[in-house]
Design a protein around this nucleic acid. Structure first.
Lengths: 336, 336
DNA sequence: TTGTATGCGTTATCAG
DNA sequence: CTGATAACGCATACAA
């Protein structure tokens, strides 16, 4: 089909080894260089990456493994990773673990067998024993978004706790005392951290956290929907609610619309992550915004240093700052 | 590092060829089968896909190439493709052409050199000469979302024209006569088809399409924003607007919120594609919904038949039906 | 600097 | 049904 090293060698009247050296940037005589360049041009020769990988155990590709593809948070990060790595001649292969640890493990085996040079993993569970089990020490891994137990690895996460602390604090200083949270599926890392931020700020301001005020969802739109409804049906509903991820924010807003709850006069709301959304919702939704591009970039950079053999400061934990984006979905609580 | 066929052969006291036959499902004596199974288990042997690919020219992977990753439309389709293909033991490698034909071509070369068995391509431009140029007849390609000139290939698209026809028809029967459209970047395939639907229904109902009523955007949020503003600033603004893709719909809504335009009393609006959005916007936005899962599934199925060597009906064009989702963003025009 | 020869892990061919 | 061996395309140790 396509021309091989041997073909080029024959046409250029040199050995395969010389062609290989040319391709890999070693020095050779002007004369040979020219002959080889001509032959390569003539035959439209391109190196066969599969053969090269088999021989060298390197593939110049990295795998990105996420719990779900159809998710704007994952995808923005993936795009950012791709952009950065592409600039350094790495290609990426994207995998979806569909929120199943079993599948995550299978995908890890798959990419390991494909000789990927590195892996960026957004873990699906809160444990990571299987990662080391599959990979050993052979392939560098960088975690994004969440940390997991039973695995020491480099990671890039955000300041979930303080993000939520400051967001909820906005509500408190406006005078809210009954502040609800639609929390995530504890003990998931981000869920736990975000809930912790809520608990801390409530405690610091001397506000009691009754059980009613903490509703546990599973980061899906459906639970955002149903839990917001549950809040509104309480005999004494909160005057403000913080929702701790994007999908649940969508569900919560949807339900508020259906129930004709007036935001913010009847209920103040803060959502999580995703700016598109906040400008489309009326009134503009206040949200905690995550630095998605930066997460991807930092993860890619960190992985690249590891792939270059630089183990400085391992395991390094990069914690990025979120940003609170004010909106008209917050006001002082209505006097009751 | 990891055990090879040779290791298994040695431990099982058979030849490498026999091990290979076992792995590939050929018949062999019960005795050998058992010995090999034991050895494989003992050594934790897994086939090396790279070596296998080099030898067989097949990789059991397909490439999915899209103009942009961070885009919920692309991603849902990709997820659907992955799901379907994964069930048939194919893996997918996802690539991003970043809306550049040059990059699209480079990525095609990349995956071709990786011996992918098939490609699902959402083209970035409206021409596809480079595709055949890169791939020749060697690798089956299925187009999704758009058709391109200079390339005969299987494709899965939606009924853009009739989708828009019926959507705009809803506005007409409600009594609107001044109906604007925020169109896409003609001559892009979907942009052209959608605009055509608008033109036809206007014509069929005897409504004049003045230049003012057709604004051309480039499928980005920004143009949705600015073009909606332009509509509202016209001395005689339309009483209804159809927006022809998701990103521009976001921008349009955003601007309407800023301008405090009352929907639907002051302006009726129909958006495109994306159900999350419609339920979050208030009042609920009427939209044209695309069958994203089905697009992915059909594309995967079609590609699979081609990869199995079945060329029946080539090139086959699958055209899927969109669905009009009613919403409260439409009403009769205010009398003026 | 260059060429020769070997091996990466697999499958295919061809005798047996 | 099984075994020995060549070949896929490339990189590298070694000798020249």
């Amino acid at each position: 089909m396509s021309a091989t090293t041997k073909d080029v060698a024959r046409l250029a009247e040199v050995s395969m080894a010389t062609v290989s050296r040319y391709v890999n940037g070693y020095a050779l005589t002007e004369q040979n260089r020219i002959k080889i360049e001509h032959a390569i041009d003539e035959l439209d020769f391109r190196i066969n990456p599969i053969a090269k990988t088999l021989r060298t155990n390197r593939s110049m590709t990295v795998a990105v493994l996420v719990p779900s593809l159809a998710n704007i948070f994952s995808m923005t990060i993936i795009e950012s990773i791709e952009r950065h790595l592409d600039a350094h001649d790495y290609s990426i292969i994207v995998c979806d673990s569909r929120n199943e640890v079993t599948r995550e493990k299978a995908k890890l085996e798959f990419v390991r067998d494909k000789y990927v040079d590195g892996i960026i993993l957004m873990p699906t569970g809160n444990t990571g024993g299987h990662v080391a089990e599959v990979l050993g020490e052979s392939i560098p891994v960088v975690l994004v978004d969440r940390l997991v137990s039973e695995l020491v690895a480099d990671a890039v996460v955000v300041d979930n706790t303080s993000a939520v602390y400051h967001a909820v604090e906005q509500l408190i200083v406006q005078g809210h005392r009954l502040i609800g949270i639609i929390a995530g599926p504890v003990p998931l890392y981000t869920a736990e951290e975000r809930l912790e931020g809520y608990r801390r700020v409530m405690q610091d301001y001397g506000l009691p956290v009754e059980d009613d005020l903490v509703q546990y969802g599973d980061y899906t739109r459906d639970t955002g929907c149903s839990l917001m409804k549950r809040f509104m049906l309480q005999e004494r509903p909160p005057t403000a609610v913080f929702v701790s991820n994007y999908e649940m924010t969508i569900g919560a807003i949807e339900r508020l619309n259906e129930l004709d709850v007036a935001v913010p006069s009847q209920l103040s709301v803060i959502g999580f992550d995703h700016l598109d959304l906040s400008s489309v919702v009326r009134p503009r939704l206040a949200v905690v915004a995550q630095p998605r591009e930066e997460i991807g970039r930092k993860a890619a950079e960190l992985l690249r240093t590891r792939m270059n053999g630089d183990k400085t400061g391992f395991p390094s934990l990069v914690r990025l700052k979120t940003q609170f984006m004010p909106g008209a979905s917050i006001t002082t609580p209505s006097s009751r």
